[in-house]
């Protein structure tokens, strides 16, 4: 009995001793076995009685899931630690990672709300990463004016250099000015243009070739109608001339709207890529100075 008490109890308790609780998971993470690491962090979270260790395990699991590209899952898992009321830096990190994973999971609205919460609760914390993420989120939400104000605030906070600030604001305006037409592009306007002038909607959407092709097709079918009718083929002119023309006409209107919507999205993606490059460059400069 004495031996059992002496030998067995420590053997069982040693399994999840607090001092080496992250050892296995960290080793797996370090060796880039992220899936296995995420399981081991979850194991720590499941078996640990300490809320702090559980929060840390959850955070580390999110890091492993991020490496696997599973941002949605990481985001869902981090929600479990929202109730954690311990160390402030850990709480900040949980919220920040939640905002980051939300942004990466195409939930910019949620990322924005979390960042506001972060700013309100942890304004005194070093917020460098916060500023970059906030800028990315604003770009994703297409809040161009807010992004400009945010950029100004960000640079002013970390660098006392008016010229640099001015240069960056001018650069930002330049990037946006290249896309002014895109902001105004509208599928309904494209459809309206094609309704009155065949092919004009496609040209408005930036697809000159498609516009020319549609306009030519309509002209050709109308010409066929005229020629056939002139030669006395009245039935044929109706079905083989006017029939194709109405297809080209209504199809052209619909196509113009689709092109405008697709091109606008594509161009906005280009703009967001350009802005991301710009914002990362600003972040790198501020970090170095």
């Amino acid at each position: 009995m004495i031996c059992t008490f002496l030998c067995a109890t420590p053997l069982i308790e040693r399994i999840y001793a607090a001092d080496d609780v992250f050892k296995k998971a960290d080793a797996l993470f370090a060796s880039e076995n992220y899936f296995e690491a995420s399981i081991e962090y979850e194991r720590v979270l499941f078996f640990s009685g300490s809320s702090e260790i559980r929060a840390m395990a959850n955070l580390q699991k999110a890091q492993a899931l991020k490496q696997l590209g599973a941002f949605g899952k990481a985001r869902n898992d981090l929600q479990r630690s929202f109730h954690f009321r311990g160390d402030d830096s850990l709480r900040f990190e949980i919220l920040y990672q939640y905002a980051f994973c939300s942004y990466m999971d195409n939930r910019s609205d949620e990322a924005f709300a979390t960042l506001l919460q972060l700013k309100h609760a942890f304004g005194h914390f070093p917020l460098h990463r916060y500023f970059l993420l906030q800028a990315m989120v604003l770009a994703d939400l297409q809040q161009w004016d807010d992004l400009r104000t945010h950029l100004e605030l960000w640079i002013t906070k970390y660098l006392d250099d008016g010229i640099f600030l001015q240069n960056k604001l001018v650069k930002y305006d330049e990037i946006l000015s290249g896309y002014e037409k895109v902001f105004r592009m509208d599928a309904e306007r494209a459809r309206l243009r094609s309704t009155f002038v065949p092919g004009l909607g496609q040209i408005y959407a930036g697809e000159f070739g498609w516009g020319l092709l549609n306009g030519f097709s309509q002209l050709a079918s109308l010409a066929a109608f005229g020629v056939m009718a002139y030669n006395g083929y009245y039935i044929a002119s109706f079905f083989a001339g006017l029939g194709p023309w109405q297809s080209f006409y209504f199809g052209g209107i619909r196509h113009a709207g689709e092109l405008a919507a697709t091109n606008k999205n594509n161009r906005l993606e280009d703009l967001q890529t350009a802005l991301s490059v710009f914002l990362l460059a600003v972040d790198a400069y501020l970090a170095d100075n």
Partner: peptide, 29 residues
């Protein structure tokens, strides 16, 4: 002999405990 028996028993307890915990964890997942 008693010591060896006790250690062996302790390992059995340890193994079954670990297994039970592992299955609990899997059920949690």
């Amino acid at each position: 002999l008693i010591m060896m028996t006790c250690v062996a028993n302790a390992r059995d307890v340890d193994d079954s405990g670990q297994l039970r915990q592992e299955i609990d964890f899997i059920l949690h997942l």
